[in-house]
């Protein structure tokens, strides 16, 4: 179960990453070009300028599992250029996953272990990728992140027309972002992640978009395994998003042993 929670949190972060803009190869039956779609998407989010101006973000919410039977409070914080930290609390214990731009680490106290541990290499690579795209998304960082975006046509997503964008990273790993053809907001993302050598195909459905300081953010995220039953996954519900609150870089760094015993209090 805890593995699932960890995954959900990754997805929550990925949700705020926008697709990279790169050379358009638009092969598909789409009425708009890739550039037009990306531009409309940026506009739908509130505009690139406003996204770029965000320096830090704090999201407070909960992970809802088993049809509401269990709610796990969570906090996600990120700070430019590439730091983030998320916490989930259960019975007064706080699980932490963080990345300071170089080092990814976790504290997993749910089985009584309170020492921080560095993430394995593959997780760190993912953390780095997510951190790089946390704010305006890899949209503006395409070249730096080495990602390319192609328009893969239009597809039905749960009854809505959507533009399908194929995002390929340097390693050749592919993920798909689906933008609603009317609102140009993301309604689905699909990725294939390597978890300990296994492929895991995850689909995420962001929704409940609300404006914060002129920028549209999703306040909910449903996540499930590809092909899984409706309602069979986990949901993240964001209750509050705060932009540009003061945050100390230290919370993102691998802690000294004493500090780790008592995870950051809120």
């Amino acid at each position: 179960m805890f593995r699932k929670i960890a995954l959900s949190v990754y997805a929550a972060i990925a949700l705020f990453c926008l697709p990279a803009l790169a050379q358009s190869t638009a092969p598909a039956k789409s009425d708009l070009s890739l550039d037009e779609i990306i531009a409309k998407h940026a506009q739908a989010r509130g505009g690139l300028d406003k996204l770029k101006a965000i320096k830090s973000i704090k999201m407070t919410g909960k992970l809802v599992v088993q049809g509401g039977a269990l709610e796990i409070p969570m906090v996600i914080q990120a700070k430019r250029p590439d730091m983030f930290r998320m916490e989930m609390s259960l019975q007064g214990k706080t699980q932490v996953q963080a990345f300071d731009g170089t080092v990814g680490w976790t504290i997993s106290p749910f089985m009584g272990k309170t020492d921080p541990e560095k993430m394995p290499e593959e997780d760190t690579v993912q953390a780095k990728d997510q951190a790089d795209g946390f704010f305006e998304g890899s949209l503006l960082n395409a070249k730096a992140m080495g990602k390319t975006v192609e328009l893969a046509g239009k597809e039905d997503v749960e009854g809505s027309d959507a533009y399908k964008l194929k995002i390929t990273d340097k390693k050749g790993d592919v993920e798909f972002e689906f933008l609603d053809a009317k609102s140009f907001l993301t309604i689905k993302s699909a990725s294939k992640r390597k978890m300990q050598g296994n492929e895991l195909e995850v689909e995420s459905f962001p929704g409940d978009f609300k404006e914060v300081n002129g920028v549209m953010f999703p306040f909910s995220l449903e996540q499930k395994a590809k092909g899984g039953p409706a309602g069979g996954g986990a949901q993240i519900v964001i209750e509050k998003i705060e932009l540009d609150v003061a945050v100390d870089d230290a919370i993102f760094k691998f802690p000294a042993k004493d500090a780790a015993k008592e995870p950051a209090k809120k």
């Binding site: 809802v64 088993q66 709610e71 259960l90 007064g92 009854g159 909910s220 449903e222």
Partner: peptide, 30 residues
Amino acid sequence: TIPASKRRGINRITWQMRMKPPKSASGATL
């Protein structure tokens, strides 16, 4: 409180028909 499902057409969400879990004390273990 259950997050709603958002799609066009019929949506079906599940409720476990349970109260929230008790707020249990914090210990060394869960």
